[in-house]
């Protein structure tokens, strides 16, 4: 048994290195497949980073009447925190609101504020939801509660915000659907590519397979070297992919951060890959092993008359 394993492994390595150009051609196809898979993974990661950054910039701003006291605001803040969809609530004092207004509209401030005796702005609460799709629910609960809306200075703003968040949630859902659709289509294309590549590799060696059978090799003895060779393809292709990722990902990060995400958020695909290396490449390795092994068994059936 051990002797057989050693010998079929030796045959696999011999085939791998001696059929050099066939090996190179097969490896290139698998490498292209892996590259495309990792492009999809990277784009998916970039999408989630972008959405997270975008989500951070969305909030529900409740501007209260000037007459509402800090005590009432704190009580309301505690009540709103009980909603599980609420991630955080930040309280802005009237002074902070005034400072912010002056910073944003300096000319207007110079004209208006001297006319007024006191700070016209009240307290504000900035509410952030855990998930982007939670905003609509939080808005609904606030709108339907007259004990809150009665305290607000500018209720109509709520409706506008809700429209934006609902639309945004729908857009994100669409993006996810399209991305998932592409991933599924791509997965099937990849299976066909790998399957055919292995088939071509075995087809070119059909004469050798017949000769092995003619001189008394059992089907197992013929099949096993091809199976091990397929595993070798997977290991080497994945190693090459890792090297390619180490070289390319910092360049991708630099390009995306300079051209696409500048001033919005910072992308770090390299770090994502290094912290998720086992999950990302482990899954790809298992998938590749399964795919190449299944392709090998299927392609050999014809020549082994199983």
């Amino acid at each position: 048994m051990i002797r057989t394993i050693v010998r079929v492994t030796k045959y696999a390595f011999q085939n791998f290195f001696r059929n050099f150009w066939l090996t190179v051609a097969t490896l290139i196809v698998i490498l292209i497949f892996l590259t495309l898979v990792n492009v999809v993974i990277s784009i998916n990661y970039m999408k989630s980073v972008a959405l997270e950054a975008f989500s951070e910039r969305i909030d529900i701003s409740l501007d209260f009447k000037q007459t509402i006291t800090e005590y009432e605001i704190l009580a309301l803040q505690d009540a709103l925190k009980k909603n599980e969809a609420v991630k955080s609530i930040e309280m802005i004092t009237p002074d902070e609101n005034l400072f912010s207004f002056q910073s944003r509209y300096p000319e207007l401030s110079e004209k208006i504020l001297p006319v007024l005796d006191t700070n016209p702005l009240g307290y504000s609460l900035i509410i952030r939801a855990r998930e982007i799709e939670d905003y609509a629910g939080i808005l609904d609960s606030i709108e339907s509660d007259s004990s809150i809306t009665d305290l607000l200075y500018a209720a109509p703003q709520l409706l506008d915000t809700r429209a934006i968040t609902v639309t945004l949630a729908a857009v994100i859902e669409k993006i996810n659907q399209v991305a998932s659709g592409f991933a599924v289509i791509f997965f099937f294309i990849a299976i066909v590519i790998i399957f055919n590549s292995i088939r071509v590799s075995i087809y070119t060696q059909r004469e050798e397979i017949n000769i092995m059978r003619l001189v008394g090799a059992t089907n197992t003895f013929v099949r096993l070297p091809f199976m091990i060779e397929a595993a070798l393809y997977s290991i080497v292709a994945l190693a090459l992919m890792t090297i390619l990722a180490v070289i390319a990902l910092p360049l991708v990060d630099a390009f995306m951060n300079e051209k696409i995400f500048a001033g919005f958020t910072t992308l770090d695909v390299s770090n994502f890959y290094s912290t998720h290396y086992i999950e990302i490449f482990g899954t790809q390795f298992l998938g590749l092993i399964f795919l190449t092994a299944a392709s090998t068994i299927y392609a050999l059936r014809r020549y082994l008359r199983v």
Partner: peptide, 23 residues
Amino acid sequence: FKLLQSKTVFENVSFPLEVSGHR
């Protein structure tokens, strides 16, 4: 001839014995 093209002369001759499990 039906020789295995990717194997040497020695390996071609030894192949039937290897598949039979000889030492």
